[in-house]
Design a binder for these strands. Structure first.
Lengths: 254, 254
DNA sequence: GAGTGGTCTAGACCACCTC
DNA sequence: AGGTGGTCTAGACCACTCG
């Protein structure tokens, strides 16, 4: 990163800066290595700190960097491929999976979820909150919504300790006919952010799933994956092992 | 949006501002309506323009707003659900689809794609560039990579006009055994941004697909979807019609 | 307490669109 | 020409982590 000055160009400074840094990351840094602090970097490139930060933000969005308040900025490892396909046994086939149940309650779901399930707004359903751990870190949180009608075997009035396992067990007994998924970009709510060890507003991939049984929507879940560290795979035939770096400059492809 | 001042709270101003605006959008604005300009809004809430912009940026990221330079900020319609599942005939079954071919060449793919295809870096493959149109607007661009070995029927030396259809035709003849997909967050390169009518760096969902035939990877594609306007659906049983607004505040769920 | 990234300000100028 | 969002600056202070 010997560059001391940016040659004046037409494109925005932060954009040019981003490509310069991106190339430097490839050639001069190792994964996990910490970068100079923002004030130094800004001075070195002759830009204001806000401009430098704009470049870093994008690189973080693309999964190239990891920034932690009070600590510093480090070079991120390649994104982790996490399987969310039906074959993944993500749920509810769930053998020994990386999912940890962290909470459980009966509550009224958000309006959008109620519509998904076809229940009245305000109607209470079983909810299970889980988080997905990979390599020791939480990469996703999930909220699972199960209308009582889907799990008639479940007698009411359970203590919190038995509740979650009971709901999951009942669900496993159901014959699932299929499932639907949708992925969209979102930003982490305060609650999710905390579990994912990110700041509120961090970019996340929101995976909404509908589970079908007996011709109806038997359950739904909303999972929130860290967008900086995850690549979601939907595979017939196993995950993609190779990371595709969506290059930030125009020079890459032929 | 009668609020003239933000009550002082502990959370960051831009975050609070975001939830205030988000609620105002629900209750006081119609889709397509234009908001007051940034300078007025900032003054109205008693914050600097940069702070106001930080809130708007997040709302745009979540698909609630659409901003256009020289024009203004408008309330965005709900995200469009676009199917990218195998059943979608996204490609190459392709009946009359919303895909438009916009270019074609023989070129060396980016290193990451070469690895995916299992060809040498620098080796030339057929490339087809397409864009996906929905409701009159481009929502995705795609680059398709096909090694010559996968389409032996293709005699070399074709004019640009015949090339793309020929590649697609040959591909349709193949017996595809399956496909793999991965989704991750990226930012639009200059070229993609132009086709998607966004600024460079705009957030996009990058869908990488591997197509298998005869036990090998016969082709690969990298598609870039506008993250602000799209919700990607992977369905056995049809798309989710209901939008899930990943709420920005904590008050939504029970 | 020293050092980091995160938030915020009050300006300025630029690129783009529309009239 | 006038209005919009996009870029950029040079500061300040805050929240967090760590030795």
């Amino acid at each position: 990163m010997g560059t001391t000055q940016l040659e004046p160009v037409q494109e925005p400074k932060y954009w040019h800066l981003k490509t310069v840094l991106n190339d430097a990351l490839d050639s001069e840094f190792e994964v996990g290595e910490i970068l100079p602090n923002e004030r130094d970097l800004a001075a070195r490139f002759g830009v204001a700190r806000a401009t430098l930060r704009q470049a870093l933000e994008q690189l973080e969005l693309e999964g190239r960097l990891q920034r932690r308040r009070g600590v510093g900025t480090t070079v991120a490892p390649p994104r982790i491929g996490v399987s969310v396909g039906p074959s993944a046994g993500t749920w509810p086939g769930a053998g020994r999976d990386a999912w940890d149940t962290v909470g459980c309650a009966e509550a009224a779901p958000p309006a959008a979820v109620a519509a998904l399930l076809g229940v009245e707004a305000g109607e209470r359903v079983h909810t299970v909150r889980r988080e997905r751990m990979i390599q020791g870190q939480a990469i996703a949180t999930e909220m699972l919504y199960v209308p009582p009608a889907s799990v008639p075997g479940l007698s009411g009035m359970l203590g919190p300790a038995e509740h979650a396992p009971a709901v999951l067990r009942e669900l496993r007994e159901l014959e699932l006919e299929g499932e639907d998924r949708a992925v969209e970009l979102g930003s982490a709510r305060a609650e999710d952010a905390k579990q994912l060890d990110r700041l509120p507003g961090a970019p996340v991939l929101v995976v909404t799933t509908r589970y079908y049984a007996q011709g109806r929507v038997a359950a739904a879940s909303v999972a929130t994956y860290r967008a900086d560290t995850c690549r979601l795979t939907f595979g017939d035939s196993g995950a993609l092992e190779v990371t595709h770096h969506q290059a930030s400059d125009t020079r890459r492809a032929s």
